[in-house]
Design a binder for these strands. Sequence first.
DNA 1: GACAAATTCAAATTTAAATTTAAAAATACG
DNA 2: CGTATTTTTAAATTTAAATTTGAATTTGTC
Lengths: 211, 211
Amino acid sequence: MAQMRRAKKSRSRVLDAACKIFGKKGYRDARIADICRQAGTNVAAVNYYFGSKASLYTEAWKQAFEKDIIPDPPDAVDATPEERLSARIHALVRKFCDHGAGGQFTRMYLMELANPTGLIDDSWRELIEPRRRHLIGTIRDLIGSAATDEDIWFCELSIINQCRALLMLNRRDLEYLVQQPLTPGLIKRLADHITQFSLAGIHAIRTNKNK
Amino acid sequence: MAQMRRAKKSRSRVLDAACKIFGKKGYRDARIADICRQAGTNVAAVNYYFGSKASLYTEAWKQAFEKDIIPDPPDAVDATPEERLSARIHALVRKFCDHGAGGQFTRMYLMELANPTGLIDDSWRELIEPRRRHLIGTIRDLIGSAATDEDIWFCELSIINQCRALLMLNRRDLEYLVQQPLTPGLIKRLADHITQFSLAGIHAIRTNKNK
DNA sequence: GACAAATTCAAATTTAAATTTAAAAATACG
DNA sequence: CGTATTTTTAAATTTAAATTTGAATTTGTC
């Protein structure tokens, strides 16, 4: 069983490379040859360890999920809804901006959003649902009881899609738009902006409902 | 030259089919065979009329642009910035929701966003730039002179990305989220929501800058 | 160190799609 | 009509990528 050690290295190098390449190119455009070059193995390694490109993809998705999605720090018991929303937005923006080493899941998430392969629908639900419920709970606290489910759903869309913004922009487009590199400082300022913008938005809806 | 008549039919059937299929599948996943089946021609028609799949793509892009992007009604001279923003958001949401017959450009826009082919960068800039400047002008009017370029850029991102929301959701995801079909009524309510949310957001930034 | 199992490799095969070809059919025009 | 041009067709070719193969190598175990 000790040969597992060396073997595991190879298998896991392929898996790491797969996360990176699938995240960068999406399922179709990712080449097994590229993945294996990246991993420093022969192309046959993919089929040897995973059987096919498709099942490598689902494995990579799972691994990226497990490694990348560190649970958000639990809310402090005495956090206000405003603080909870802010924390959530900052976490989302940071996550969505992280196209680098740690952020493979995020890239894969986007690629799957844009070109659904349908290969990972099950893991998808499991993953998204609890986080969605958490955000909706926070919005509900902020928006008050006069709001309808539709109001809450719309606010959720507004917030999530603002955070997703940078996901959709490639480096060139980004430079074209902002004229500055994506530094941690910029990311923080963007998250602050979205928080402020969204709190005002939610508050306006609340006020409108109660008038 | 009268043979052009019949010929044009064939060429233009291919172009129409290309808009539809490229819009549905994106560049890579679209099959020339599918496009030609749709158009009722032989596969060779693509290379006969357009030379290659790539140049069919750029032609289709141009045609979808010309047919699909009806210029927004010019702003009434006496429209307030609030009214202009509202009109712009309603136009964007309506456009982005139109996945049907008239909305091929929208679909191609999304596919290009998600998987840039780089084939249409030039047309892209031409198309987006004037509309961008218009929106930025409106935001500038609303946000006041204390705001920085970065503030304005952030607000632009917030607004555009809220409008893009429905672009990213396929029918199944949508039903899962809202539990209702995408009726014109829903689209209007969503645009109203985004307008209200965004005006409040911009106003909050303005207030914050001036304090 | 020798044998068995696991792994890696380069090369062969398969598959799917775009592209080209050359012959047939349709059309235009004198 | 007859011939020249354009268009369409089915089939052949090319290309790019995934997958399979079987031999060579490495590793683990006795």
